[in-house]
Nucleic acid binder design. Structure first.
Lengths: 334, 334
DNA sequence: CTGAAAGCGCTAACAA
DNA sequence: TTGTTAGCGCTTTCAG
């Protein structure tokens, strides 16, 4: 392995000067800079990130925290989209991404400990379950964080305008003539609660009564299976809704399955609208009408915020991105 | 930050002894071991991974290389499934995962350089394009690697039995009575070529002629769009096939779209079989018949192999996992 | 069973 | 503009 000492030796300068060149110090003459750069090239020198981190206390690494227990994790398009967007900007700003789990060195540990051991500069948190004590511990630490789909006074946060999304969905259904509008919720999650709130708010604004039988909670991990179960429940209601707003596309897909299994049709018998606009839903029959959230942009923004904090920004930031109604075929006009 | 020096000071032992405790050396008396562990706990000591890596030349980090240009990357269920499986075992063995891109420190660089700078212990490669010079450079290096869907003499490899999958698909179609069987290929990729090979082999075995007009290549990144385009091409053939075997589920989905857009129906007019069994396809109408590959198992195995190499295994390993026909509704009996 | 000393590769005062 | 010195936190001989 070639080190700055090797470069120092062959150029005749000191290691310090060599180091200065690689750190863009101004007080190096153009001539020596050139010479050092040249021989570094010739020798095939590559800096050692660990050594650098040891002295500077900066690792240029960002930890990625996401849901493991559910197994949905990385496989869920929401997560994947956010990470994709996040990676794009963090990479261009010089940071690499590392997965942080509760496992480290093959032993169980907390997220916070894992982060400290690895010396990450900051962490992006994409956890649906915000009651996890290890997550809470992280929140109370002074590690730079950005939280997705979460609210916090101490850490920066970013999320889609879930309430507006819920309202958008209900209003659209109302415009189509629907009055009996049910909701399949995203369980005990921030996004789920906001979407439910949007639903409730819109129903009230429209003067539509909410039948308690028409509000069913799906599971926090937004699986198709959970949507199916919720819809089966809904189909047992004394009065059937004519439309349902599902808090996630997977839930909506599950709901469509349940409807079909029951011998009913979407949208002829029941209209369904989802939330997310994951890629697959436009290929369903009927293609799913849904509320689109821009996961890629969410990831971009999250990275901006986190890097701002990492690089000394004091302000706790928060941002909300607009959502959009995407009309396809799963909702019919009454 | 608490270091082993702090522990040494408060316990009265030397830093060396403290270090030995954390490295499970046998030559420490149970009593001192206990005392050191206790005060470490009290002081809230956490090891510093960078410092450790600097001396040991081991980072307990595995680099993850995957396709970025296509943008499909992490969003593709194949990739996500493999990573999920890979992460599971590598994490339990004490390794963390880091994304490796061609960007480092905000500047362009090669994969190999990025790996060396970060000091990863090994890398898992999931790149469709095996002509990428930076990938080749990595192959020629002595960094431990495991390659997915690739063949190599110098690095360990793992993939599904793509040829058998192709054969399975064609034979199934043949059993259903199909004779005019077309193929939409996965382009210039290892998996794509093997699947094509399986197709050709089966056709020949069955004594079915292969109409050149009936073999169209999709793009290497297996997108829905590329499947749609390929199918449109196929629909212009002088003789229409009664069935098509698509080398990937996304391609199959695109093909289904094209068929529908043309006013034809699946499977009444054309039967379609895919490859992968990504989650969404069972929710399509008709639900897609496909060849399932076990991406999670692929990831598990890949991690086993890579860690074997990292930890000193000399042997270049290679493994092939079986695939399975999943019959649903997109192929009809003639 | 314990510890002293050296060194991993790099950066950061501070002098010169 | 350049170099000396010290040190980041840890591991590893090797000696006691």
């Amino acid at each position: 392995m070639i080190t700055i000492y090797d470069i120092a030796k062959t150029t005749g300068f000191s290691p310090t000067t060599v180091s200065k060149v690689f750190n863009d110090y101004a007080d190096v003459s153009p001539k020596t800079r050139r010479k050092i750069l040249e021989t570094a090239e010739q020798l095939g020198y590559l800096p050692n990130a660990h050594a650098r981190s040891l002295t500077t206390k900066r690792s240029w690494t960002i930890g990625v925290l996401f849901n493991e227990p559910s197994g949905a994790g990385i496989l869920h398009p929401y997560f994947a989209g956010v990470i994709e967007g996040f990676k794009k900007v963090s990479t261009s700003r010089g940071y690499d991404l590392m997965f942080i789990s509760k496992d480290i060195g093959g032993k169980k540990s907390s997220y916070l400990e894992h982060c400290k051991i690895r010396g990450v500069d900051g962490v992006v948190v994409i956890l649906p379950d915000f009651t996890d004590p290890y997550f809470l511990e992280l929140l109370e630490s002074n590690i730079p964080c950005v939280l997705l789909d979460q609210e916090s006074d101490t850490k920066s946060t970013i999320y889609s305008d879930n309430i507006a999304g819920g309202i958008l969905a209900v209003n659209y259904l109302h415009e189509l003539g629907h009055r009996l509008i049910a909701h399949i919720g995203g369980g005990n999650t921030f996004a789920g609660e906001k979407r439910l709130q949007g639903y409730l708010q819109a129903m009230e604004g429209l003067g539509l009564p909410v039948d308690p039988e028409h509000v069913i909670q799906g599971s926090y991990d937004y699986t198709v299976e959970s949507g199916r179960i919720a819809m089966e429940e809904l189909l047992k209601a004394s009065v059937l809704p004519s439309a349902v707003f599902a808090a996630g596309d997977n839930l909506a897909v599950g709901a469509m399955m349940a409807v079909k299994n029951q011998g009913l049709r979407v949208p002829e018998d029941i209209s369904i609208i989802g939330f997310d606009d994951i890629e697959m839903v436009k290929f369903l029959t009927p293609a799913l009408t849904t509320i689109r959230q821009d996961t890629y942009a969410l990831g971009n923004k999250a990275a901006d915020m986190l890097i701002y904090t990492i690089e000394g920004g004091e302000e706790v930031q928060s941002d909300m991105l607009p959502v959009e109604l995407v009309i396809r075929e799963s909702c019919r006009s009454l």
